[in-house]
Amino acid sequence: MGMKETLKKIFSTSAETGEKHPEEKYRTRYYKIMKDKAMQEIQTVINNKSGYDVTSVSEDHGEIIVNLKKGKKAFVVITVIMVRPYRTAVDVSVSTETVFFSDFGFSRKVIEDIYNELDQKMTFVGTGLSDELNPM
Rank of each mutant, 00 (worst) to 15 (best):
G2N: 15
G2R: 11
G2I: 11
M3R: 10
M3E: 01
K4N: 07
L7H: 12
F11E: 03
T17Y: 04
E19H: 06
E23Q: 09
K25A: 10
R27D: 09
T28I: 11
R29H: 13
Y31K: 01
Y31I: 12
Y31A: 14
I33N: 03
I33R: 02
M34C: 08
K35L: 04
D36C: 11
K37T: 07
A38Y: 01
Q40L: 15
Q43R: 15
T44A: 11
V45A: 12
V45K: 03
V45C: 08
I46T: 00
I46E: 05
S50A: 13
G51N: 12
Y52K: 03
Y52T: 00
D53W: 07
T55N: 14
V57E: 06
V57F: 13
V57Q: 03
S58V: 12
E59I: 14
D60H: 05
H61P: 06
G62F: 10
E63A: 10
I64L: 07
I65R: 13
V66L: 12
N67K: 13
G71E: 04
K72Q: 07
K73L: 10
A74T: 00
F75T: 01
V77M: 11
I78P: 09
T79I: 09
I81G: 12
M82S: 04
P85L: 13
Y86P: 06
R87G: 06
A89R: 15
V90S: 02
V90G: 03
D91H: 06
S93H: 05
S93Q: 06
S95L: 04
T96F: 01
T96R: 02
T96M: 10
V99Y: 07
F100I: 02
F101K: 04
D103V: 03
D103Q: 08
F104W: 11
S107I: 00
R108I: 00
V110H: 09
E112W: 01
D113W: 02
D113R: 03
D113K: 05
D113V: 05
I114F: 02
N116C: 08
N116T: 11
N116G: 06
N116H: 13
L118Q: 01
M122K: 01
M122G: 00
M122D: 01
T123F: 14
T123P: 02
F124Y: 01
F124P: 00
F124M: 05
F124E: 09
V125K: 04
V125I: 14
G128S: 09
L129C: 14
P135M: 11
P135H: 09
